[in-house]
Design a protein around this nucleic acid. Structure first.
Lengths: 134, 134
DNA sequence: ATATAATTAAGAACCATTCCTAATAAGGAG
DNA sequence: CTCCTTATTAGGAATGGTTCTTAATTATAT
């Protein structure tokens, strides 16, 4: 009655994801693995990340990208999207339960959670832009 | 010194978008136009929607989809994504300015706005699920 | 050690989106 | 109204991330 197997590939993929702090897409994880000399195939990376997200081992990010992104950190948290470099950063503010309550009161839908994405410019890009000004 | 032209195609595309209340992707607008017997090409639909969004005439939706969606309603508002039918609905709750202030205080980034997407089940699907229960 | 079935590698297929180019037509000038 | 300029379009090829397919592999139970 074998159901789930622990393979080298799965372990490598999840370890690599957790090392990457840039909220990568499945493709980015695949590329990283290739750089490291791994021969894990594209489809294996896509499948494992997708399955891990379904199992709740990793997080499938709610990001307004045209690509799905993953995060090793499964704690609920918000994201900041830099409109200059397109990078994704974590916000430090805690989950706002009351936002869900507000929606439950106002809207007729069955709300279970929400996500927030901030639009802004990250510190790195901000600094770079200020230096260009001079 | 002609800069911007008003073409039949542009007019038709924007009118069609505003008639559609389901926050369509560019492709969905293209399909709708075809159903209506229009011969407007795919690339024209994509280009016009993208340009209109840049000009602020329409809204490029912040939705955690793998596709970009557009909205004729340019008022800032939040969205509810139904996890059953995958539909996108508008929330009635007003924009929460203080969320931006909170992030500005806690995070170091230059925040200009945010978007919220609720995860839930829409009224239609809720009703359908309840009827199946019986 | 063997069996079986979950998992993988490799790459073809998919499909929304972008890109390219010749043809078209909006709108200003005469 | 007619001509010119050039923004815009139609049509389709190219792109590229993701999904799918299949035979080969390999984790795990027995």
């Amino acid at each position: 009655m074998a159901e789930k197997r622990n393979t080298h590939q799965k372990k490598m993929i999840l370890e690599t994801l957790c090392e990457m702090k840039n909220h990568p897409t499945a493709y980015m994880v695949f590329e990283r693995l290739q750089e490291m000399g791994s021969h894990i195939s594209k489809s294996t990376v896509y499948r494992n990340l997708s399955e891990a997200a379904e199992e709740g081992i990793i997080l499938k990010l709610a990001i307004t990208d045209s690509d799905v992104r993953y995060d090793g950190n499964t704690m609920p948290h918000y994201h900041i999207r830099c409109r200059e470099c397109n990078g994704v950063y974590d916000s430090k503010i805690p989950y706002q339960d009351y936002i869900d309550e507000l929606s439950r009161k106002e809207d007729g839908e069955l709300i279970s959670s929400h996500m927030i994405e901030f639009n802004g410019v990250c510190q790195k890009c901000k600094k770079r832009m200020e230096e260009k000004e001079k």
